[in-house]
């Protein structure tokens, strides 16, 4: 049995309580949500917080609702809720694509979206999903809240914009008309972390690509988004040619390393291949959304 170093345990009764504990206990205190990233690291003694602040009682951080043209997701929402939610799936099928291949049911039952994003592992699938969807993250401290775009939230491997006495409380995903999204991941076995993954989201306006979000996981990119791939798509018709150009751009934007999951060369190829695949499916879904909207007489 792998056992962590000694630590003290506190159970927060509210967000305010959790923030107060973070402030009084100082730098050596860590929030624990699902614990599926933090506890393994503690057991390997790679992480040794002196205090754990358990936020699992904060059910007011566990919600999914549409408000102000956004899907708002509480930070304590579990992988499983995202996977099972029709609301999430209807607006952002990319979440269902990704959640199906994240870990296994026991991990998904407990692991949270907040924990995934705050862990900021370069292979974290939800980071790529949120980046492709251009999420805004709401971070709260004792002094108030800040809204941070995903691109500024992720500061590199295991580093985020969340300050020492702050918590991520909400993820906001803008609802974009006539849009579609998809996620493609290569793994060595079910539940494995990605060898490489790509997420794509795009909207169609008058048969051309309006907005585009391309994000990569496990590919060593300095930022999660592939800006060049996104630019390659803007204003284009959703054709194989456009997707190929985006795929090539994504392959240029990434900086993978050779390891047990594969060579850098292979992973760079996957950035291209998976970006194209995700784009094809995202475009198909966007076309269906545009058709449905057209049938309902909505304006794009």
């Amino acid at each position: 049995m792998q056992v962590p170093a000694a630590f003290e345990y506190r159970r927060a009764s509210s967000v305010e309580d959790a923030l107060a504990l973070l402030e009084t206990l100082g730098e050596e205190a860590r929030v624990v949500a699902g614990g599926h990233s933090l506890l393994p690291m503690m057991k390997l003694r790679l992480a040794r917080p002196e205090y754990l602040i358990d936020i699992n009682d904060l059910s007011d951080l566990d919600y999914l609702r549409v408000e102000g043209g956004e899907l708002r997701v509480g930070a304590l929402t579990r992988h499983r809720s995202l996977l099972e939610s029709e609301l999430v799936g209807s607006h952002f099928p990319i979440f269902h694509d990704a959640e199906r291949v994240i870990a296994d049911p026991p991990v998904r039952n407990r692991g949270t979206i907040g924990g995934s994003l705050c862990q900021a592992d370069p292979s974290e699938d939800l980071s790529a999903v949120c980046a492709a969807l251009r999420a805004t993250l709401v971070v709260r401290g004792r002094g108030g809240t800040r809204a941070i775009p995903m691109a500024a939230f992720y500061r590199g491997p295991y580093e985020t914009a969340v300050g020492p006495a702050e918590m991520l409380v909400e993820i906001r995903l803008p609802l974009v008309p006539h849009s579609g999204s998809a996620y493609e991941k290569v793994e060595r076995k079910a539940g494995d972390w990605a060898v490489a993954a790509a997420g794509a989201a795009l909207s169609l306006h008058g048969g051309r690509i309006g907005q585009a979000g391309i994000a990569l996981a496990a590919l060593g990119a300095a930022t999660v988004n592939s800006v060049r791939a996104e630019q390659a798509l803007l204003g284009q018709e959703p054709t194989e040619q456009a997707f190929a150009a985006a795929g090539r751009a994504a392959a240029q934007d990434c900086d993978p390393v050779t390891d047990g999951r594969g060579s850098a060369e292979y992973k760079r190829h996957l950035a291209d291949e998976l970006t194209r695949r995700a784009l094809r499916r995202a475009a198909d879904r966007a076309a269906v959304a545009a058709l449905a909207a057209g049938a309902a007489g909505e304006d794009g």
Binding site: V186, R188, V195, R261, G262, S263, E265, Y266, K267, H269
Partner: peptide, 13 residues
Amino acid sequence: LTPGRVWQAMHGG
């Protein structure tokens, strides 16, 4: 024969 090794084998690596 992980995906990476298979792909590499297909491409002569």
